[in-house]
Amino acid sequence: MKKWFGSAAICINENKDLLMVKSVGSEAWAVPSGGIEVGESPEECCIREVKEETGYDVEIVEKLFIKEVKLKEYKVKTYYFLVNYFGESEGINDPDELIIEVDWKSLSEIQSIKHGYPEDLAFLMDLMK
Rank of each mutant, 00 (worst) to 15 (best):
Val102Ala: 09
Leu18Trp: 01
Phe65Asp: 03
Gly34His: 01
Val61Cys: 08
His115Pro: 00
Leu82Cys: 04
Glu88Pro: 01
Glu109Gly: 05
Lys70Met: 08
Gly34Pro: 02
Glu40Leu: 04
Ser33Asn: 13
Met20Thr: 10
Gly6Pro: 03
Tyr74Val: 01
Gly55Arg: 05
Cys46Gly: 03
Ile12Gln: 01
Glu73Met: 10
Lys114Thr: 07
Trp104Asn: 02
Asp120His: 14
Ile60Phe: 08
Glu44Ala: 14
Lys16Ser: 13
Val69Cys: 03
Gln111Asp: 06
Pro95Thr: 06
Leu121Tyr: 12
Val61Trp: 07
Glu27His: 13
Ile66Thr: 14
Lys67Pro: 00
Tyr74Leu: 01
Ile110Leu: 15
Glu73Val: 04
Glu27Val: 11
Tyr79Ile: 02
Gly87His: 10
Ile100Asp: 04
Arg48Ser: 06
Val58His: 00
Glu59Leu: 08
Glu49Arg: 15
Ile66Asp: 10
Glu68Ile: 12
Leu64Arg: 12
Lys114Met: 10
Lys72Met: 09
Pro118His: 06
Gly34Phe: 02
Asp120Gln: 11
Glu59Val: 12
Gly55Leu: 03
Cys11Asp: 00
Val24Leu: 15
Gln111Met: 13
Lys77Glu: 11
Lys22Gly: 00
Asn13Leu: 07
Pro118Cys: 07
Ser112Pro: 02
Asp126Gly: 06
Asn84Ser: 12
Tyr85Arg: 15
Tyr80His: 11
Ser41Arg: 13
Asn13Asp: 14
Glu44Leu: 07
Ala28Arg: 15
Leu107Trp: 09
Met1Leu: 10
Ser89Leu: 07
Ile100Met: 12
Lys22Thr: 03
Ser108Pro: 02
Val50Cys: 04
Leu71Tyr: 14
Pro42Val: 02
Tyr117Gln: 08
Lys16Phe: 11
Glu109Met: 12
Lys2Glu: 08
Ile10Cys: 10
Ile10Ala: 03
Asp17Gly: 02
Gly91His: 08
Val21Glu: 11
Trp4Arg: 13
Phe123Thr: 04
Tyr56Phe: 15
Lys129Pro: 01
Asp17Ile: 00
Glu88Tyr: 11
Asp17Thr: 12
Gly25Ser: 07
Leu64Gln: 05
Thr78Met: 13
Glu62Asp: 09
Met1Ser: 12
Gly39Ile: 02
Glu37Trp: 15
Asp96His: 15
Tyr56Ser: 00
Glu49Ile: 08
Asp126Phe: 12
Ile36Arg: 01
Glu53Lys: 15
Cys11Glu: 00
Lys72Asn: 10
Glu97Ile: 06
Leu18Thr: 02
Lys3Cys: 07
Asp57Gln: 11
Phe5Thr: 08
Val61Thr: 07
Cys11His: 01
Asp17His: 15
Lys105Asp: 01
Leu121Glu: 12
Leu124Ser: 01
Glu44Gln: 14
Glu97Asn: 13
Val31Arg: 04
Glu109Trp: 11
Lys105Gly: 05
Gly55Val: 05
Asn84Cys: 05
Asp94Asn: 06
Pro95Cys: 09
Ile66Ala: 02
Trp4Phe: 11
Val24Met: 11
Gly87Leu: 04
Glu90Ala: 13
Val50Ile: 08
Ile100Cys: 10
Val31Pro: 00
Lys51Asp: 00
Trp4Gly: 00
Gly25Ala: 10
Lys129Asn: 11
Glu68Asn: 15
Tyr85Glu: 07
Glu109Ile: 05
